[in-house]
Design a protein around this nucleic acid. Structure first.
Lengths: 339, 339
DNA sequence: CCGTCATATGTAAACGCTTTCATATTCTCG
DNA sequence: CGAGAATATGAAAGCGTTTACATATGACGG
């Protein structure tokens, strides 16, 4: 069985008796051709099983119909639903996603960006704005539409959620129902502007009531359930013991809740726990988790829509800023403090 | 600020007084050059901020250092951890991942495959073996290494887990501790060989004890927590009521457990519940979930390793089959039936 | 001191497509 | 009926690399 070389435009041209230019047009601008020519070419193309070579197309035309996305991790309920939605939108428009992750390591992110750029993506989607100058330099040099999601600087397009407000809302709510002693479990703040903003929002709400958020009231952790447990353990040793713990990501809050329950601390009677994200499982837990809804899927959809506009009409006047609303979702893991 | 065109090999050649071929070699086979020439070229390249254009490289050399992956959904704890690990391995070897998802729709999968192939990926990773003949035809025609994960036909490379065995194990365990009346909540079986295999494993274990798995004992659902609740609701109306419910994915089992608890049915005293997957949260729930551990991340790592071998040495004698072990994890959501 | 070979570099032809420009054909209308 | 416009097709020049082949240079043994 001879290993048939893949058919090219040239093969079709030869077989169909037209020129390669005509065949090319049959593929990309069929309305320019006489119906019978088009028909003849299509027939041959189908017979040969022609599949266009997008690499060549990209090289010749300058567009690759390819978008690069760099996220901290694929393995997170939040990012993956953003990605899922983004992929859906892009695919529907004939664009492919090149996805990379960096596990919160700035150097890996730089490497991933360089790779994507050298692959010739038509656009880039990145999470947040905190990255070394060298990465920004790469992005500038790439001369390619850039969209920041979750957080972002105003010089470039961004689809954000108000992380600060998310923190503020949940803290404010807990204050309103009477809490004064807080513990916060958050992700590592270095290089993570989403987490930082959430913590700052909490801090602002507290300070408005002349409450402080001390270093010891904060436990920085990886963004996992186990880490949430660990963080909870630490905070419970605080004196006076907090009456409310906020996890700046649901996974952390969920972990904290499990840990508390494991120690026989009744949630919310003896300890209120709240999160941010509103992941699927939050509504189902017992008690169900009070949290702040973050429209993760929407971020993906909006980012894709904006990117498509940017890529199609190079009408690029960047700096569009879309901020999606976050909303407090009060459930049953929070209650008035008992004391 | 003039929009500087990106520098090319040609620019470097001109600036450095060498030929374009020499510059090309400086990039890809530096050992062939005289040290001083190399030095001179590197200096110019650095000064101009040269970034190689992989599209052109791919076109000329035939390799794109790009791997296509098609999964049912990105938004699943299982697939996303496989992807995460796969991406890590590939990135470490200079390969980029083109990721597409199809939401369990065969036509979308075909479209995605066609896209990836036309993008000229060096290899393809797909989930399972169940797809229309037309998709298989595409894959054959692509002339590119193919690796199937989770399930797969023997004609092609595959990294699998024994889904059948996973189902068998959990059912066998429940039988051993005395259960006879079962309910099963599973994903849609059409076009999903992973889910089908798990159900068949359960059926086999039951039939070995002369128990049947009737149509009415099975509830097909989407793979979400809410769907698990719905499935549980249905099964609880069965007469006689099952003493054990198996979710063929942890999300389903977790949903079922929430539903049961919401109705005041104590797990495991009045109802045993078990899953398959061993997702993160399973260990932390109360009661913790009995399940079968599936090494999702490992699948990603093994798939990447095998693919790298295939792509590097075209030593392609496909048909490698690696089956990763699944292990029963007994926790506290299962117990002897009370009656 | 010449032929032979290894080494370093250059030349030019691909790779498969898009796109500009030119050419051939047909249509329109005064 | 013929000038000019509109339409359909073709020829050929890229796009930025890689790579087979050619050439130039110097080393070396006889």
């Amino acid at each position: 069985m001879p290993r048939h070389r893949k058919p090219t435009l040239n093969d079709i041209a030869r077989e169909s008796g037209s020129s390669i230019a005509t065949v090319s047009r049959a593929m990309s601008q069929p309305e320019l051709l006489q119906p019978q020519t088009l028909e003849r070419i299509r027939e041959v193309a189908a017979r040969l099983g022609y599949v266009p070579n997008r690499r060549a197309r990209a090289l010749a035309s300058g567009n690759s119909e390819t978008i690069g996305v760099v996220v901290p991790t694929l393995n997170s309920p939040i990012f993956s639903s953003t990605l899922q939605e983004m992929q859906r939108s892009f695919a529907a428009n004939g664009f492919q996603l090149l996805i990379a992750s960096h596990e919160y390591d700035p150097a890996s992110e730089t490497a991933a960006l360089a790779q994507l750029i050298s692959h010739g993506v038509d656009g880039l989607v990145v999470v947040g704005a905190q990255r070394p100058q060298s990465s920004w330099a790469l992005l500038e040099a790439a001369q390619v539409p850039l969209i920041q999601i979750w957080e972002g600087r105003s010089e470039h397009d961004r689809i954000t959620v108000d992380n600060y407000q998310a923190g503020y809302l949940v803290a404010r709510y807990l204050i309103d129902i009477g809490h004064r002693k807080f513990g916060v479990i958050c992700g590592h703040l270095l290089n993570n502007d989403r987490q930082s903003a959430r913590v700052e929002g909490i801090r602002a709400a507290l300070e408005k009531e002349d409450l402080r958020l001390a270093r010891t009231q904060i436990s920085e952790q990886p963004l996992t359930i186990s880490a949430g447990r660990a963080g909870c353990m630490t905070l419970l040793e605080m004196l006076p013991r907090p009456t409310a713990i906020i996890g700046t990501a649901d996974l952390l809050a969920i972990g904290a809740m499990f840990e508390a329950q494991g120690r026989g601390i009744v949630v919310p009677d003896a300890l209120s726990i709240a999160g941010i994200d509103n992941v699927d499982v939050a509504a189902h837990l017992s008690p169900s988790l009070t949290t702040v809804d973050i429209p993760a899927a929407n971020i993906g959809a909006e980012a894709a829509a904006l990117m498509l506009r940017r890529v199609r009409q190079g009408d690029t006047k960047p700096g569009t800023s879309i901020s999606l609303p976050v909303t407090l979702v009060v459930r049953h893991s929070t209650a008035r403090p008992s004391d």
